[in-house]
Design a protein around this nucleic acid. Structure first.
Lengths: 144, 144
DNA sequence: TGCATTTAAATTGTATACAATATAATTTTG
DNA sequence: CAAAATTATATTGTATACAATTTAAATGCA
């Protein structure tokens, strides 16, 4: 396991699978004019209606260097609005628009389509997800 | 599991973890002037000495649009040479240089450092790796 | 043989990621 | 209170990813 060969690495299948799973989303999101990170942000917004850039960054593990241009593109598409906080001018609040809200209906069956293509039963999916979140937790604590 | 909320998705922790694990490599690779994809290519080259762009692409699930500039940068650093195949001028063979060979010594303890930071025992790591490769296999077959 | 098809890389253009730095606003502190 | 430190976002620059197209070479086949 500690060998310096591609096939013994844990990181590599993680990297490759992440990209290939994202590729599964592409044909589902492209007709909606969405990219995968934009879809992630929309999922957050459907749940929260309003979030700061910092809060989005914490959820997605992304910084403002990535989020600022990404959110600007989403604003251009009319999915969200970027509004400076009145009480703290450093903060930018992201608001879901009516249009962004309606996009949710178009995305309702995406999760089931993806899970089907991964050929996973629900139990397996839940188990794998837990394991991945455990590792994220480990890294989160180290980052502190 | 089929809910349209970030925390119920399987894809998201995969995406986030992949990036965070790559971030673990960064402080180890940066002193060597390497990026993570460059390190992956080096691992392949240490094993094979000579590969075509297409063969590298198949191993890493990357296309020439990504690999051509990446390999040019590695050539500039003196890690590899890019040489047109004499018998088939469409093909570019990538050769490991002496210098690229020597880099292996600097990377020997990277895998153990990473595994340590992930706080995984070898059995867990092997099990997770297998599961990820199974999913890659599923996607590979669909891609056919 | 000669031309259509296929193949391997390269190129172009767009969208992330992320380090490093800059900017502006707020908080802390002496 | 005023300067220093911190914080939130934006900007700049570099390096992937990847779709779409182009180019050049090799192959298939009538």
């Amino acid at each position: 396991m500690l060998e310096l060969t591609l096939k013994y690495q844990l990181c590599f299948p993680m990297y490759a699978l992440s990209r290939q799973v994202t590729a599964l989303y592409r044909p589902l999101l492209e007709p909606l004019g969405l990219t995968y990170p934009q879809y992630l942000i929309l999922m957050l917004m459907w749940e929260h209606k309003k979030l700061t850039v910092k809060e989005i960054g914490k959820e997605l593990w992304l910084d403002s260097g990535t989020l600022t241009p990404l959110l600007k593109r989403m604003e251009e598409k009319g999915l969200v609005e970027r509004i400076r906080d009145k009480s703290d001018e450093r903060v930018v609040n992201i608001h879901l628009t009516e249009s962004g809200m309606l996009f949710r209906n178009e995305c309702l069956d995406i999760p089931s389509k993806i899970q089907c293509q991964l050929n996973l039963n629900p139990d397996q999916a839940v188990a794998l997800r837990s394991q991945l979140y455990e590792l994220l937790e480990v890294l989160d604590k180290q980052g502190t």
